[in-house]
């Protein structure tokens, strides 16, 4: 009985490692929270971004303002 208990105790760390890498109802929320961007990481959405260069030109022409274009390989608001 005592040997069995010791063996089980030795296996506990392994079980912890294994469960950390398994997707279960218990780990679901932890993984979800880790992957999703924080409010700070999403703060850029607060600006009144237009999602295409031409929409920027249309609105700038209407509002008599200069255009500021942020251009990346891959849309900056999608996968870049």
């Amino acid at each position: 009985m005592k040997r069995t208990a010791i063996a089980l105790l030795l296996l506990l760390p392994l079980a912890a490692i294994s469960s950390a890498n398994e997707l279960t109802d218990a780990s679901y929320e932890r993984v979800r929270k880790h992957v999703l961007p924080s409010a700070e990481e999403e703060a850029w959405r607060k600006n009144a971004w237009r999602t295409t260069f031409w929409q920027g030109v249309i609105d700038a022409n209407k509002e008599d303002k200069p255009v500021m274009l942020f251009a990346m390989n891959g849309h900056p608001f999608g996968c870049t």
């Binding site: 600006n47 009144a48 971004w49 237009r50 999602t51 295409t52 260069f53 031409w54 929409q55 920027g56 030109v57 609105d59 700038a60 509002e63 303002k65 200069p66 255009v67 500021m68 274009l69 942020f70 251009a71 990346m72 390989n73 891959g74 849309h75 900056p76 608001f77």
Partner: peptide, 21 residues
Amino acid sequence: LESFVPCADEVWRLHNLREPD
């Protein structure tokens, strides 16, 4: 930034295609 109209776009398309924009 309020003095500008901010926009973002994919640059390869803007740099290489023959569309009006």
